[in-house]
């Protein structure tokens, strides 16, 4: 389980990193926490020509609150999110969801933006960010753009990020006044990949629900909290021998997440 040969760069500046990503003659991958990429390299399922290691780009290592908005830089670790008092107070859904990501050793290294850009359908943070109406700031040498969850997540391990683009920041708006949130998931064992999950935000005007395990990307539903669990799973097209169990599981997880959000 050793990776196939690759070239390696460790830029210190964002512009330098973006310039490397813009090389058209090579398949270039970004290394941040490496908690998904390195296993893929070791299994030789990913065979990039070049790795651009972001860990030396100090300007991307931040997690801060500006004017009530949470900003998560590309090098903010999952553990930073887990341990932030500001996140626990302002975005408890993220604090709750991140504790389901792997184990402490994984969260110490894994980044929030990396988890989003990898777009694993079993990942917790994309679902929580989807329920929180997060926006995703993307940079390339040729320019920048900002995406919503719908625009970013396209399919299994697939986003709308172009090869030369880097997810540099996630922006999470303040929770509406009087709102609550809750997260629930089901995995075979603690820290294992989730089989199903639900992130819920209940506001005075209604509820938002994002499901994990309902498809290749986070699936979002809005509506009255008491109708959401049934309404959400009714429309899912689940296949496989255990489809009916997964439907029942997602309904229960939605119910639990909404109940926590309303509590």
């Amino acid at each position: 389980m050793k990776p196939a040969p690759f070239a390696y760069d460790a830029p210190r500046e964002l512009d330098e990193a973006l310039a490397l990503l813009a090389r058209e003659d090579e398949d270039v991958k970004v290394l941040a926490g490496g908690q998904s990429l390195v296993p893929l390299l070791n299994f030789r399922l990913a065979r990039p020509d070049r790795l651009v290691d972001l860990n030396g780009v100090a300007s991307l290592a931040y997690l801060r609150v500006d004017d009530g908005v949470l900003r998560i830089g590309a090098l903010a670790r999952q553990a930073d999110l887990e341990r932030s008092a500001e996140v626990a107070a302002g975005w408890p859904l993220l604090a709750e969801a991140v504790r389901h990501v792997g184990h402490p050793q994984i969260r110490a290294r894994g980044t929030v933006c990396g988890s989003v850009a990898h777009a694993d359908p079993a990942a917790e943070l994309p679902v929580a960010l989807c329920a929180l109406d997060a926006r995703f700031h993307v940079r390339a040498a040729r320019g920048s753009r900002t995406l919503t969850s719908d625009e970013l997540f396209l399919g299994f391990l697939t986003t709308s990020l172009e090869p030369d683009e880097l997810l540099v920041e996630i922006e999470v708006p303040a929770m509406p006044a009087g709102s609550g949130s809750g997260f629930a998931e089901h995995a075979r064992t603690h820290g294992d990949f989730a089989v199903g999950g639900a992130a819920a935000v209940v506001t005075p005007g209604g509820a938002r629900l994002a499901l994990l395990g309902a498809g290749p990307v986070p699936v979002r539903f809005d509506g009255p909290a008491d109708e959401l669990p049934d309404a959400a799973v009714a429309g899912l097209s689940l296949t496989g021998a255990d489809a009916e169990w997964r439907r029942a599981l997602l309904r229960e997880l939605a119910r639990r997440a909404l109940a926590r959000a309303a509590a």
Binding site: R188, T189, H190, D192, F193
Partner: peptide
């Protein structure tokens, strides 16, 4: 064929 598909119990279980 990997721990992604074959689980062992953890202290939590």
């Amino acid at each position: 064929a990997s721990f992604a598909d074959y689980s062992l119990l953890t202290a939590a279980e």
